[in-house]
Every structure is written in C-alpha cells, then in structure tokens.
Amino acid sequence: MPTRTPAAFRAISYFAYAYKRTWRGSVATSFLYPVLYLTAMGLGLGTLVDHHAHQVDHVRYLVFLAPGLLASTAMQIGGNEATYPVMAAIKWLRTYFAMLASPLDVEDVLIGHLLWIGIRVLMVSVIYLGVMTAFGTVLSPLALLAVPAAVLTGLAFAAPICAFAATQENDTGFATLYRFVLVPLFLFSGTFFPVSQLPGWLQPVALATPLEHGVSLCRALVLGQVRPVTALADTVYLVAVAGAGFLAARVAYRRRLVT
C-alpha cells in the first residue's frame, strides 16, 4: 500500500503544508518588492544615473540593475529560509525531531529542507522575472535561464547558512549574519554598480563572494551578453559553494540532531 516517494520529498510536504497558511501574503510580497525596487532605484535613481553617466555597461541603469536585484533577492530568500525556519525546526517547533521519529534520516531532513528553499527561490524568481519583463528590462530569451541561475544562487547561500544555523543556540547570531554578511554583499557585489567601481583592493573580495557570481550570471543571461567561459566559471563557483555548504550542513545537522 505505501507508495515509494523518496524520503527527502516527504520532508518537503511539511514545508508545503506550512506554506499553505501564508502563501497569499508571500506571493503578494514577491510581486510588491520588485515593483517597488525597480520603480524607486531603477526608474527614480536610474533617470539620474543615465542623465549623468549616460549608461552603465552599455544599457540603461534600470536594465543594468534588474538582474542584479533578481540575484540579490535569491540570496535573501535563501538566507531567510535557512535562518529562522531552521532554528524553529530545531528548537521552537522541533519539526526536525518529528521527522526523525519517522523513517526519515538526517540527510533526508536536510535535503528536503534545501529542496523546499529551492522551490521558494524558484517561485520568487519566476515572479521577479515577470515583473522585470513588464518593466521592459529583459533583453534576451536566455533570461529564462536566469531562473535556475537564481535558484542556484539562493542555494549557494542557503546551504552554508543551514550549517551555521544548526550550530546556533539562539537567533542572535542571525542578526550578525545579516548585518555583517548579507547586507554588505547586497550593497557591494555588483547589484547596484559594477564591481570595477570599487577601490582596487576591494575588487577581489567582491569577486570572491557567491553573490557577485550570481549577479554576473543572471545579468549576462537577462541582457543576452553571455560569455561562455565567464558563465561557466560563475556556475561552477556557485555549485561548489552550494556543495561545500551542503557537506558542512550535513555534519552540523548530524551533530545537532543525532545525540
């Protein structure tokens, strides 16, 4: 009688049920944010930028900005879903322990949660791309590939942050993570201006961050300016970070959940 659903997929059903409760607000927010950002930064600020600098990387500022925001949003969703929800599943609601009392193993629990985070980033990215299209910032059909690129960017953050979250006793570490990692990355990883504008010594730092590669990849795809070697390097880098994060998370989850 039992079906044969892979164990990690069964873990997703929890998050899907929990999402049922908040999906309306969540989807509305996913529309609202790109509209607000693209209007204020892209149209408002962009008009100023275009007037003075003429163009950024040969396109209007709005067009330059939009794919960067897409990648940054993927990072934020990945980060949000891997911090407080992980803490809740370990300490506040103890959802992971409910899962672990069933046939699911630690690895299933982790993979299931990461897959769910991937689905969340996917949903938000599709909506983002839709709004970008409405704003006329999509210049190439390759932009469709920016959705998986954004999902990969989200996972490159979610996996290591899951590992970090599983080592925390309470949520104070998350505020530090946002303040000193995610916000600076958002501001300095090529979302709002090309990394080449940074002081020389800071450029390699920016280039070493996963967000810079996510931004670079998404932008190349949305603008139709793909240089295969760069795109491949960006992809490999993001996969490597996500993979290393996954391995770290697997160790951290085992230590925390199986005692």
Binding site: S13, R94, A98
Partner: peptide
C-alpha cells in the same frame, strides 16, 4: 516527552503531514 506538533497548523494537517513522512497515500 516534549510535543513536536506544529502549533500554527490545524489538528488534521498535523496528522496529514506526519502520515506523509511514512509515505502513506
């Protein structure tokens, strides 16, 4: 010893989710 119910979800949803962990249709 400590309940691991999801407080935000309904009574029935808690049962449905748990059953899915066991891969029951």
């Amino acid at each position: 010893q400590e309940d691991t119910l999801d407080l935000e979800l309904t009574v029935l949803d808690n049962l449905m989710i748990y059953g899915r962990y066991f891969d029951l249709p």
